[in-house]
Each structure stands twice: as structure tokens, then as C-alpha cells.
Simulated assay, not measured.
Amino acid sequence: WVINIVRFYKVYCDVEPKRQALSKANADLAVAQDKLVNIKAKIAHLNENLVKLTAKFETATSDKLKCQQAAEATASTISLANRLVGGLVSENVRWAEAVRDFKQQKSALCGDVLLITAFVSYLGYFTKKYRQDL
């Protein structure tokens, strides 16, 4: 019995520090696992925020592209309008001359119409060859 007690003591002296180390390692493991769970929860939360922010970024990017395309289309339209206005400047000069000519013709218009109608009514009875000769 004494021999067994001495052997048990030797084994106990050898095993007890290992048990204490095991319990300390288990405690450290539990703390590390708690930290791991907290870190995984934070990572999941950050991933959710990343997905939301990525969606917002894509929406903002598409809105930016639409605005850029609208700005380019507007710039193109403005350029075309400027070209049209530039082209119509010369027409303005021509139209002003035409208006002046029409104002000059306005005073003689009634007499011109009267002469033309008289001429057409007089020559209307003659043959085509005779009218061409006239």
C-alpha cells in the first residue's frame, strides 16, 4: 500500500502541474474564443456596412455617369445651337435687306398688280405664238 501511495505521489506530482496547465489553457482558450466570437460579430457587422456602402457607391457612380452624359448631351446641344445662331446671323442680314425691298415695293404694289392683270386679260385672247412674240 505504501509503495502505491509513493507511486501515486510521484505520478500526482508529475500530473498535477499538467492539470493546472490544462485548466489554465482551457481558460485562455475560452477567453480567446470569446474574443474570436466578438471579432467575428464585428467582421459580420463591417461586411454588412461594406455591402450597404458598396451599393450606395454603385448608385452614386451610376448617377454620376448619367449626369455626365446629360452634361455632354447638353454641351452638344448648346454647340449645335451656337452653330445655328451663327449661321442665322447671315440670314438676318439677308432678311433685313428683303424687308427693305418689300417696303420699297409696297408703295408700287397696287399699280404693278393692276398693270399685270390688265396685261394678262388683254393678251389672254391671243394665241400662244403671238403672246411669245410680244
Rank of each mutant, 00 (worst) to 15 (best):
V31S: 03
K106Q: 11
K40Q: 11
D28A: 07
L29W: 06
V31H: 01
V31G: 01
N47C: 02
H45D: 11
E48Q: 13
F57S: 15
V93F: 07
L50I: 12
L46P: 03
Q33K: 14
K56D: 12
N26M: 08
D63E: 15
V93C: 04
A70F: 12
W95H: 07
Q105R: 12
H45T: 15
K35Q: 14
W95D: 08
V37E: 06
A98L: 07
W95P: 00
V37G: 00
S23Y: 04
E72V: 13
L50H: 15
Q104P: 01
L88Y: 02
K103Y: 04
N82L: 10
V99W: 03
A32N: 05
K66M: 14
R100L: 08
V37I: 08
E72G: 05
A25P: 00
F57Q: 14
K24P: 00
N38H: 10
A41Q: 11
N92F: 05
K56P: 00
Q104G: 01
L84C: 00
K40R: 13
A55L: 09
A41I: 09
L84I: 01
V93E: 06
D34W: 02
L88P: 00
A71H: 06
V51A: 08
F102E: 01
T59F: 02
A60W: 04
Q69G: 09
F57I: 14
K56V: 08
V85R: 05
Q33T: 13
E72M: 10
K66S: 08
